[in-house]
Design a protein around this nucleic acid. Structure first.
Lengths: 335, 335
DNA sequence: TTGAAAGCGCTAACAT
DNA sequence: ATGTTAGCGCTTTCAA
């Protein structure tokens, strides 16, 4: 890497002259500025980021800790974060906790030693199960702001971006009730997560309000189980199901395909609605009616909130929670 | 952040004494070491990463530039990279080129100014179309190693990790020929990419070798088109299709569902085989027979290659290309 | 056994 | 208009 020192030597001026010239300081003579800039251009000089970070005590880097990059929703949020961060000149360092509390703690610690100016994260499953929050609090005490998205730790005082999970499923279920569905089932693959629980509650509320059926819930334990087989058996044991609300895209897609495989017509015999993305909806036939989470928008919001907070150093104690409303995109799997 | 200076002051010793004590230098007295370490522990002292980077002139950070985080294959490679990097104490800074040449160049430039010790990247579509490679060469000339994966620029001298695209599709097509399929179609959504072209060639070779049918190829222009509709029409216009080879997962999934929707039996009437992941194969019924790319393994390999190269500074001029063999996972969509 | 000083690359207050 | 110096946090050589 070419440094100020090298340029200074070649030009027979001092380092600070070069620095000032490149920063358009009024102090330096026109002629000198020109010479300096030309040489810098020639050598493609770029200020060393690390030196700047040390000097300014800020890195222009955001630490992002996510539980699972293979989750499409999370990947999309990450896309939003990166897009917005880049717009403001920030880079993102990504760590994947892999749903592990230990890895989450480590990553947080490591990045907190000077690598980043703040964090955006979604809480690992293990962390949610154990309800651990001390590591988050400690980081905040160190003066590094955190913005949590989707899976948040409610007891940590920090900015948050979440989805209206409860309302979304409540409304989706109600829309199926309006279709005169009499036996609406709820299928979930994410029942250990905070958001999974909220979604189940939304379903329960809608069903209980209606009062014409008992809640019918299928909870799938991740990984261990053969997702397809479980759902097939569920259909076999509950032949009168005429609608499905799915808390996650896999469950929705598999339920839809299973219904078709059983010779049922979708949506005539069975309606299906699921938390899922646009491309998921294109992967079924008929196209899946989906609850969209606007993942990219969430990422953008999270990044904006963090950047705002990082720029207003005097740690404003009021934290905000932004609820990004979902929307139902009606396709052909519902009436 | 707590610094050596602060510890030194509190202990009434010099900064260098503290530094040495914490680094287990033989020079420092046992008693002092103990005092220093205790205080460091108490204050949860962690050496400042930025200062270390500046001092050592290496950041222990890998720059990863990918065209699209929403591509499941790429996301999986990223997972592999992150896993392996973390194992070796490296962080990853992720930039998303969004298939844009300009963004790719910018990211490369920005990170090259001291933020990272090397790069892992997959070339943007626009870059491949324009066949631009100067920006890569320049980075390498600066002394920063690059490892490319999947979509590589063959004319750049650097380490690469690729898939045996040609052979994979060639073999897949042959396996359909062995099933006595007489009218095998090839569907691709990625025809502008280097890998897409290789896959098409593999298909063509197998078909031409057999000599019993003409190649039947459907190329879908990304984004603009309604993927489902195009494939439906393709089926309508080619009623005798009895097998599909898909260059990408979306095309495979949609083709399978379309066939079923037309009342065809899979795999009795139509076989389908596609480049896709395990979870994709679970999203169809019958389960999709897939060509697996071992994306995570590719990420791990790429990270290993880069780390090796970064540690052997005296830029070894021989570059390696690692070909990660795909494997066909037979499910229920083929005979 | 401990400390002082230099240097990584940069900026900025303070000379000249 | 230009240069000197100090300092960001750390390691390391050299001096005490």
């Amino acid at each position: 890497m070419v440094t100020l020192k090298m340029l200074a030597k070649e030009l027979n001026v001092s380092i600070s002259t070069v620095s000032k010239a490149l920063n358009n300081s009024e102090e330096i003579g026109e002629e000198t500025v020109k010479r300096v800039k030309e040489l810098a251009e020639l050598y493609n000089y770029k200020p060393n980021k690390v030196a700047l970070s040390l000097k300014n005590n800020k890195t222009k880097t955001i630490g992002v800790i996510i539980p699972n990059i293979l989750n499409r929703f999370i990947a999309k949020v990450l896309f939003g974060i990166e897009t917005e961060a880049a717009k403001h000149g920030y880079n993102i360092i990504t760590c994947i906790s892999n749903e592990s509390l230990v890895k989450e703690k480590e990553s947080l610690q490591l990045l907190a030693s000077g690598s980043v100016d703040g964090f955006i994260l979604s809480v690992a499953e293990e962390t949610q199960i154990n309800n651990e929050i001390e590591h988050f609090k400690q980081i905040i005490k160190q003066g590094l702001p955190i913005v949590m998205f989707d899976r948040v730790a409610h007891d940590v005082m920090c900015d948050k971006v979440i989805v209206d999970d409860f309302d979304a499923i409540y409304n989706a279920t109600k829309s199926l009730i309006k279709e005169k569905r009499k036996n609406i089932a709820f299928i979930s693959n994410i029942n250990d997560l905070s958001v999974g629980k909220l979604r189940e509650r939304g379903y329960n509320k809608a069903i209980l309000e209606q009062g014409k059926q008992e809640p019918l819930v299928l909870k799938i334990k991740k990984k261990k189980d053969d997702h397809q087989k479980i759902i097939k058996n569920f259909f076999k044991e509950n032949k009168t199901i005429d609608a499905i609300v799915a808390a996650d895209s896999s469950s929705g897609i598999i339920a839809l395909n299973t219904a078709i495989n059983f010779g049922l017509k979708v949506p005539k015999d069975v309606s299906v609605i699921a938390f899922a993305s646009k491309s998921d909806s294109n992967h079924t036939l008929p196209k899946l009616t989906t609850i969209r989470q606007h993942a990219k928008a969430m990422g953008i919001s999270a990044a904006q909130m963090l950047i705002t907070r990082m720029q207003n150093l005097p740690a404003n104690p009021d934290v905000k929670t932004k609820i990004v409303k979902t929307s139902i995109v009606k396709n052909k799997s519902t009436l």
